[in-house]
């Protein structure tokens, strides 16, 4: 059988065995052997991440509901939202690319935000949602595949390319995507799975003493 040993940790990148030391707020611990980031002390990280995730969820809905860009030439105009662009690719026999874009800019960010809120909302209300381990495993697995910030850069490049031959009508979703890029960055910076486990170790049944 396996048994726990604390408070030692191993570096993820070089396997060096290290003693876990307490940090000042906003400090980062790095590995003595390879310089990899080990952990951070983000004060109140669960509550903060929840607020950022809820904001991101609202922006995400706006970003997908409204057109990103419109173009006009000689009185003919066309506008599209993200889903419309994906659907157009699907109809033009580019199904694999349509699926790739759909997964990385719509599906995975949506799943990421849903799971984040599912996990953090009960924890912040001092309850324990079922399936925390599975939730964190999935969150970690899909994280590299959510690419809102890359898509945002793609929107800017498209804007420049289109500006050459069309007049451009910026859509509501353009601003929403800008905000969403920022919110995803703050969620990534404040969320720390380690804090979830620390929280659970302190309050195993989810019921706080005070």
């Amino acid at each position: 059988m396996a048994h726990q040993i604390e408070p030692l940790i191993a570096c993820r990148e070089c396997d060096l065995l290290l003693r876990e030391i307490p940090l000042f707020p906003n400090d980062v611990a790095s590995c003595r052997g390879c310089g990899a980031q080990l952990y951070r002390n983000t004060p109140n990280s669960l509550n903060r991440t929840l607020v950022f995730s809820l904001t991101a969820a609202i922006l995400f809905i706006i970003a997908n509901a409204y057109p990103i860009l419109g173009i006009e030439i000689q009185g003919t105009r066309n506008a599209t939202n993200l889903y419309g662009a994906v659907y157009s690719l699907w109809n033009h026999e580019m199904r694999i690319i349509a699926l790739l874009v759909f997964a990385t800019t719509i599906l995975i960010p949506a799943v990421e935000l849903t799971m984040m809120i599912y996990l953090l909302l009960p924890l912040c209300l001092r309850r324990k949602p079922p399936g925390i381990a599975l939730n964190l495993r999935i969150l970690q697995g899909i994280k590299p595949w959510g690419m809102i910030e890359v898509f945002m850069l793609g929107v800017l490049v498209s804007l420049v390319k289109l500006n050459d031959s069309f007049s451009i009508i910026p859509g509501v979703a353009l601003w929403a995507f800008g905000g969403l890029t920022f919110m995803f960055a703050t969620v990534a910076a404040s969320f720390n799975p380690r804090d979830v486990w620390a929280h659970l170790d302190r309050e195993p049944d989810g019921k706080g003493s005070t």
């Binding site: 599209t80 590299p144 890359v150 850069l153």
Partner: peptide, 25 residues
């Protein structure tokens, strides 16, 4: 840096989604 290579895929998606103006472009 790996994820940033997706840039061109997104540019193509947006342009192909937007520029559907029949005979014009």
């Amino acid at each position: 840096v790996g994820r940033w290579s997706m840039l061109d895929i997104y540019v193509v998606t947006l342009l192909a989604g937007l520029v559907q103006l029949r005979s014009l472009a």
